[in-house]
Amino acid sequence: MKTKVLAIDDSRTIRNLLAATLEEAGFEYHCAVDGREGVDMYTDVDPDVVITDINMPNLDGFGVIEELRGDDFASKVPILVLTTESAPEMKARARGAGATGWITKPFDDDSLIFALKRVTGAAM
């Protein structure tokens, strides 16, 4: 079974980049265009890992983490924060909300896969 990724990002460019990298690496890729849609899609997709942007309209990344962590169904899912904010306080805030890890944009394919591997155990 493929590892299912739900990516939430308002940038089409980033979504396409993620899709290209992840699908090539053998992940099953789903995406949402903002935080609200991401949370709404969660139950249907039932992903093994969530990748979310921070700065988004209609519920930002922190909101996504908080809502997912507050949901029994999603409280354990690994959530990687995808953001250009590499300032330590951003990460601290994301982790405080329950993020599993983070990926700093721009990302390269290897680093992305490595991060996913550490949180899902996906053997890629």
Binding site: T84, K91, D108, D110
Partner: peptide, 22 residues
């Protein structure tokens, strides 16, 4: 801020060499 992905908080000099096992 131009850090390699994923290692923002730590000083990770060895990143480019990091093998990514398949």
């Amino acid at each position: 801020v131009f850090e390699p992905m994923g290692f923002g908080g730590l000083d990770m000099g060895g990143l480019p060499d990091l093998p990514l096992p398949d």
